[in-house]
């Protein structure tokens, strides 16, 4: 973990750092330059985020004002009703619940199998371990689009077409989690196992009492990645869901706004804003975990 300095606390920036380390003193000119740089950065960030601002603004406009020249940010009135309409125009609450259910169930399975296999690949000795692990690696190269057609045939065979199982199960075993967890467990000192063993704990107890609690931050990272991929998935639900109003998830619901009745942009935008909320909340809550997880799981700083 010598490379783990990546997540030094924010306060490690200039102010609290001992002056002697800062060999190059900042001149006034540099300060002006860095201020200008900061302003430019803010402008870039603003430009970058403007489509999302536009999304939110449009979601609050009256229907007739979604396209105007010159473009306006705000309409003549703030129409919160659009959000209500988005929920009533389509069974959006249903899509939300479906999406949450599928994403949470899939993520839970993924985490459970990945933490077990990650542990097996890193700290247990068994025949063929590395061979199986290399096979796991190899599956990451397979684009999911290649699997979609046989997967559909398989779902037919199982009688799973147009069911929640079909949305959840096939993608709950991706190998990514095993890697994240394996990388993490490799960083845990061997002494911990030994100590547990001295205390008389077997493999199972060591795993549940010692290792699992330690793995929580990495599991959080895996949870976020897994949740996001489930939540945003489009091609597979498009193929396997027949009754959108019963089994549709958020992306399908959004697409459904472009139905026969014409695009209702203000409602579409309201629905898009709603669809963003869960993942953005996750992101804000877990952003430090995320960066840390990327470092500890061996992505950055090697």
């Amino acid at each position: 973990m010598s490379s783990g300095i990546g997540v030094r606390p924010r306060t490690a920036a200039a102010p609290t750092r001992p002056v002697k380390k800062r060999v190059v003193q900042r001149t006034t000119g540099q300060r002006v330059k860095s201020t200008i740089g900061y302003v430019i950065l803010c402008l870039i960030a603003l430009a970058f985020i403007s489509p999302l601002i536009y999304m939110v603004a449009t979601s609050l406009k009256p229907a007739a004002e979604t396209f105007t020249t010159p473009p306006t940010l705000w309409g003549s009135a703030i129409v919160w009703q659009n959000y209500v309409d988005a929920f009533t125009y389509l069974p959006f609450a249903r899509f939300l619940v479906n999406g949450l259910f599928v994403a949470i169930a899939g993520t839970a399975i993924n985490m459970a199998v990945a933490v077990l296999s990650g542990y097996a690949f890193s700290r247990l000795r068994w025949r063929g371990r590395n061979t199986v692990f290399v096979l796991f690696l190899a599956t990451l190269m397979i684009p999911q689009d290649v699997l979609v057609i046989p997967m559909y045939v398989m779902m037919q065979g199982f009688g799973w077409v147009d069911t929640f199982q079909a949305l959840i199960i096939p993608w709950a075993f991706t190998a990514l989690g095993a890697f994240l967890l394996r990388q993490f467990f490799l960083t845990v000192p061997q002494e911990l196992d030994d100590a547990a063993r001295v205390d008389g704990a077997g493999t199972v107890r060591t795993f549940f009492l010692v290792m699992l609690p330690l793995a929580r931050p990495t599991l959080a990272v895996l949870a976020v990645f897994s949740f996001i991929t489930y939540w945003n998935s489009f091609l597979w639900p498009l193929i396997v869901v027949n009754d959108v109003n019963a089994h549709g998830t958020i992306p399908l619901g959004l697409q459904q706004f472009f139905g026969q009745q014409g695009s209702q942009w203000n409602l579409v935008m309201a629905a898009s804003v709603i669809s963003m909320v869960p993942t953005v909340i996750l992101l804000i809550l877990l952003q430090r975990h995320l960066v840390k997880g990327i470092v500890t799981s061996g992505l950055g700083g090697r």
Binding site: Y89, L90, V153, Q156, G159, D162, N242, G259, Q260
Partner: peptide
Amino acid sequence: LTACSGSSGSSGSQSAKALTWGMWIAGNAD
């Protein structure tokens, strides 16, 4: 698996009293 797929699957849960109907739907009002 592919052998299974050759035979026709079930047409949902149809019975003489419960039929399914495929329709294009544009929204709740629809």
